[in-house]
Simulated scan of single mutants.
Amino acid sequence: MKLKHYIVAMSAAVMLVGTGLTIAQTPQETAVKKLVEPRLADGIKVDSVTKTPYAGLYEVRVGSEVLYTDEKAQYLFIGNVIDAKNGVNYTKARTDDLSRVKFSDLPLESALKMVKGDGKRVIAVFEDPNCGYCKRLRKTLAGMDNITVYTFMYNILSEDSAVKSKNIWCSADRNKAWEDWMLNGKAAAPAQSNCVTPNDKILALGQKLRVNGTPAIFFADGSRVPGALDAKGLEEKFASLHNVKVN
């Protein structure tokens, strides 16, 4: 695949979103940005260029994606920078940081809420009602305790996803309707036409947060994990957050 085509595909996948922040750059970083931006695909805008402490590389940030170049922008490096001594993946650490959210800013009133046990362990999950991996995750969550799950019904997989979400949202017991569908394949009764849902709001939110697939799990520290974790993976993640300050 040609480099320009790769960058187009990459940027389309992450859905570029401005952060509203202005980051001061050194003259050299500004110069590298001016050199590298015209060499990317047409219309691709570089959010920032930052000199890294390794190998003389400059980080080129496009949305939440990261690539690298040299000081003359003659070469572009797409992939992970890993410390050969300790195995630390600097690129993953950086992209994880860029993809963090402020959990308290999520519109939780627009989500389904399930509480089990003391509910102290909190996650928010973006799920499509037609997503097989979401159903697998739902089975995992059903077997866990002491957890609060906020579910944003994120309709991106098929035309009737929004219909199914509306029927569930407009049910007398939303959580039961969601569980019945995701765990047992029992569809909710058709909603009345005047029932208002947050479907459009959640779709816009997911796009803003660059949620490109379901499920997507957000933890209380703002970190995210794309895909369906199993029970062991979730427990390990919760354990790692035990002493982390929630933002």
Results as ranks from 00 to 15, higher is better:
residue 199 N to G: 01
residue 40 L to Q: 10
residue 111 A to V: 13
residue 194 N to V: 01
residue 42 D to Y: 02
residue 213 G to Y: 01
residue 184 N to V: 00
residue 74 Q to T: 08
residue 223 S to N: 10
residue 181 W to R: 01
residue 224 R to L: 09
residue 150 Y to R: 01
residue 34 K to L: 11
residue 75 Y to N: 11
residue 76 L to Q: 11
residue 133 Y to C: 06
residue 212 N to M: 07
residue 70 D to V: 02
residue 172 A to M: 05
residue 124 A to T: 02
residue 181 W to L: 10
residue 163 V to Y: 06
residue 174 R to F: 00
residue 77 F to C: 02
residue 66 V to Y: 03
residue 136 R to L: 12
residue 227 G to M: 10
residue 49 V to M: 10
residue 122 V to N: 01
residue 208 K to L: 03
residue 70 D to F: 01
residue 214 T to K: 05
residue 148 T to I: 00
residue 1 M to Q: 12
residue 226 P to W: 09
residue 93 A to H: 09
residue 53 P to Y: 08
residue 228 A to E: 07
residue 214 T to P: 10
residue 197 T to N: 08
residue 43 G to Y: 10
residue 86 N to C: 05
residue 166 K to Q: 14
residue 123 I to H: 04
residue 111 A to F: 14
residue 82 I to C: 06
residue 80 N to P: 03
residue 147 I to E: 04
residue 160 D to K: 15
residue 147 I to V: 14
residue 158 S to R: 13
residue 169 W to N: 07
residue 137 L to G: 03
residue 216 A to E: 11
residue 11 S to R: 13
residue 63 G to Y: 04
residue 87 G to M: 09
residue 4 K to T: 15
residue 9 A to P: 00
residue 124 A to S: 14
residue 153 M to Q: 08
residue 47 D to S: 12
residue 238 F to A: 02
residue 131 C to A: 06
residue 79 G to T: 05
residue 2 K to E: 14
residue 48 S to C: 07
residue 235 E to Q: 15
residue 134 C to E: 08
residue 40 L to S: 12
residue 115 V to N: 00
residue 176 K to N: 00
residue 48 S to V: 15
residue 228 A to V: 03
residue 26 T to M: 06
residue 33 K to F: 03
residue 194 N to W: 03
residue 78 I to K: 10
residue 67 L to R: 05
residue 180 D to K: 02
residue 130 N to W: 04
residue 78 I to H: 11
residue 67 L to T: 10
residue 135 K to E: 11
residue 216 A to C: 08
residue 102 K to F: 12
residue 197 T to K: 02
residue 89 N to Q: 07
residue 167 N to A: 12
residue 142 A to E: 03
residue 43 G to W: 10
residue 136 R to E: 14
residue 150 Y to V: 02
residue 64 S to N: 14
residue 18 G to Y: 04
residue 238 F to E: 00
residue 222 G to R: 07
residue 185 G to I: 03
residue 191 A to F: 00
residue 139 K to Y: 00
residue 154 Y to P: 09
residue 10 M to C: 08
residue 147 I to S: 01
residue 225 V to Y: 14
residue 224 R to S: 13
residue 175 N to L: 08
residue 181 W to G: 04
residue 216 A to L: 01
residue 55 A to K: 11
residue 26 T to W: 07
residue 201 K to L: 09
residue 4 K to I: 04
residue 135 K to R: 15
residue 25 Q to W: 04
residue 20 G to K: 06
residue 189 A to E: 14
residue 232 K to V: 14
residue 68 Y to K: 00
residue 123 I to C: 05
residue 144 M to E: 04
residue 15 M to R: 15
residue 111 A to H: 11
residue 122 V to G: 06
residue 214 T to F: 08
residue 45 K to G: 06
residue 27 P to A: 10
residue 203 L to M: 13
residue 5 H to G: 12
residue 57 L to H: 08
residue 170 C to L: 07
residue 127 E to C: 05
residue 230 D to Q: 13
residue 149 V to K: 02
residue 104 S to M: 11
residue 18 G to C: 06
residue 152 F to A: 00
residue 48 S to W: 02
residue 229 L to R: 04
residue 226 P to H: 09
residue 104 S to E: 15
residue 11 S to G: 09
residue 173 D to T: 05
residue 132 G to L: 01
residue 143 G to N: 13
residue 93 A to W: 06
residue 22 T to N: 12
residue 73 A to V: 01
